[in-house]
Amino acid sequence: MKKSVLFGALTVTGLAAGATQAATLDDVKERGELNCGVVTGLAGFGAPDANGVWEGFDVSVCRAVAAAVLGDPTAVNFVPTTGQTRFTALASGEIDMLARNTTWTFSRDTDLKFDFAGVNYYDGQGFIVPTELGVSSAKDLDGATVCIQTGTTTELNLADFFRNNNISYEPVPVETNAEAQQQYLAGACDAYTTDASGLAATRATFENPGDHVILPEIISKEPLGPLVRHGDNEWGDIVRWTLNALIAAEEFGVTSANVNELASAPGTNPEVNRLLGTEGELGAMIGLENDWAKRAIAAGGNYGEIFEKNIGENTPIGLARGLNAQWTNGGLIYAPPFR
């Protein structure tokens, strides 16, 4: 008799474990706070400002999701993760979502059991070298010492690139961008490689950015985007469509400045009306209030505003939109219809 009670208890625990796994939305609402995994510090993408408030391009995605779900863009608990710890943190449930310049790859999507909510930055891997080395192409790097963040796709791309071009190199593994920057500036490595956006962001923080050149070769495709655990599709939908709402808002000209006005009454564009909840019941379909998208946009602006504010051409990082322009402007940024 006792045995059967015990097994019963075990089954219940097992089921309970399975059940908590599935309802991330309820957990977040109950907690009143979104646990969002971010980078340990990369200017423009995710770093605390002078007051310790996290800001950046990836951080804005976290804030938009928190605003959509909880109505408060500041209700986010930012968990800094390194290239090595991020996946364990997400898989174990320590964080609800990861918005940390993470590349969407086949094995991460399938074998590692994650779901990518979309792409918020189309990137590629590049190299930065001191100008005084006189290197003009990555193929001139034969025998060079290269700093590389461990546990990233860039590590694998780097190995493939040098192997394909039949040139040798010496990898110096580092854990974080800050460590890589310190090693690179001390001259312990000749070149530093990571996503080109990350290189631009890192170079912006150098004392003399002009002494360093980003080589023209982009050796890989790095579609970066937020991701969630596999298996909780409702939660995945929320993150996916929050990102899409930010992108669609830019396309339709909805900005943080006019979003309240547009959401106060139905306008002429029915898709904007559905997006902002003045028409239809889109919010209810993903288990949120009808003004979820309005709150997400009000948190930090639309995709274009977030881009310009954090990493755009008027910031020290100075990235052009390039591939990350709206599809209407010849870029790849494209949101499916809100219908």
Partner: peptide, 21 residues
């Protein structure tokens, strides 16, 4: 791993775990 020395913790316990899950 603190200084990027590739011991078994960094290869098997670090990169390999990260790439294979």
């Amino acid at each position: 791993i603190a200084v990027g020395y590739m011991d078994v913790r960094s290869t098997l316990g670090g990169i390999t775990i990260n790439q294979t899950g």
